[in-house]
Design a protein around this nucleic acid. Structure first.
Lengths: 221, 221
DNA sequence: GCCGGAATAACACATATGTGTTATTGTACC
DNA sequence: GGTACAATAACACATATGTGTTATTCCGGC
């Protein structure tokens, strides 16, 4: 089989011990390690498609680009790569966000190493979706509250703001600062500042909160 | 531990072999067997609460009352009983319906007996939600199409923030800066800054937008 | 090929904001 | 009478933000 695995975690110790365990317990090769999302995407850029990892173990809580944004970004670039989220918390919103972003599985970090290995193999070979049972429970709870929506929407004509500006506005709305938005969208902070300045001019406001308020009132976010 | 298990399946052979496996592999007692939902509910009626099964293995496809309707009906009567659905199909709609009905776990019938036993124990002891990986995958797919309906409610205990802090938060929410809030509330900007710092600490956030987002989500403004 | 606009990027400066610390006052509770 | 706490106020410092200005690249339309 010879699986190719990547590990993204800001804690170097975690990465190494996990990589070591994968190697000795299952002969699985960790072909790429990164300390945050930006780092990971940088390293992916120089790989040929046949070198892509089969499964990426992705920490959620990281400085710089977090695990969820990283999955969202890379799912469009590398749709065949599967992501197994690792987290210390089992926070409802995070789980939902990660799933929407395209995560293929969701494990708690204190899962036994053998269980993690098994999940990696299931994910890679069977196209299954492994979850820690406690995560699965929350997933069910979320689903039972959810209403299936036939993907409605498209308010369409928000031609006032450009696509790019809308993206920036969405990031602002969830409380990110310049640096974080820049990291998420792969732009410089200078560009983000310029976009925001343009947004303010178009909306006739002078601060983040005012802009976000207008966006929310008009259902742009 | 001594778990009490019930099995509901229209195929007598399935019931017996499953019961036998539970008994010899894990010493788990099957205290009740039924061939369909009506049968199951009849038998439950004559039991005292302390005799209720801990976990019920529930087939979905059955003549008479099917597994999903059975769970729906019995969840109101016996809320403490947990249901582990067993099915040969992994049909999307069925999964969603079963979850809404109150199923606590969802396994494919061709799961290895040891895996089923493990799931029963996890469900009973840890209050977890075991799922076959392929079911989990479909669950994720459903969730990613779903829109969370927060079912609102609970303004109630906003004792977290003081009255004064709430006033300040409201002013923040409409886009005022420190000076404007101070002027509106006849306070010094120093005081406003202190209030806001306290608000951040209580809400575990670090910026206006994040604080306002929480306030709006909780209907405080 | 040229033009205009959008997206990108950079620099500089004045303000606003986030954070740590300290202090005074009023008031409710024991 | 003491004390615990909310509200008020102030200071200092490091960052984040708002704003003005300039420049390059890419793309669609004429």
């Amino acid at each position: 089989m010879n699986l190719k695995i990547a590990i993204v975690d800001d804690n170097r110790r975690n990465r190494y011990s996990l990589a070591e365990q994968l190697r000795i317990s299952a002969g699985i090769a960790v072909i790429l390690q990164a300390g945050d999302g930006g780092d990971y995407l940088e390293q992916m850029k120089v790989l040929e498609p046949e070198q892509y990892p089969d499964v990426v173990l992705m920490d959620i809580e990281m400085p710089g680009m977090n695990g969820i944004d990283t999955v969202r970004n890379s799912k469009t670039l590398y749709p065949s790569v599967k992501y197994l989220m690792l987290t210390v918390f089992d926070d409802d919103d995070k789980i939902f966000e990660a799933i929407r972003a395209g995560a293929n599985g969701y494990l708690l970090k204190d899962e036994k190493p053998m269980a993690i290995i098994e999940c990696i193999q299931q994910l890679a070979e069977l196209d299954a979706a492994p979850m820690s049972p406690s995560i699965a429970r929350k997933t069910l709870a979320l689903l039972s509250q959810a209403t299936l929506v036939t993907s409605v929407d498209k308010p369409a004509s928000v031609q006032l703001l450009s696509e790019r500006e809308l993206e920036v506005l969405k990031q602002m709305a969830i409380g990110k600062d310049y640096k974080q938005i820049a990291a998420t969208l792969f732009l410089s902070t200078h560009t983000i500042r310029k976009h925001i300045a343009n947004i303010y001019e178009k909306l006739h406001v002078t601060s983040k909160i005012q802009a976000v308020n207008i966006a929310q009132k008009n259902n742009w976010v």
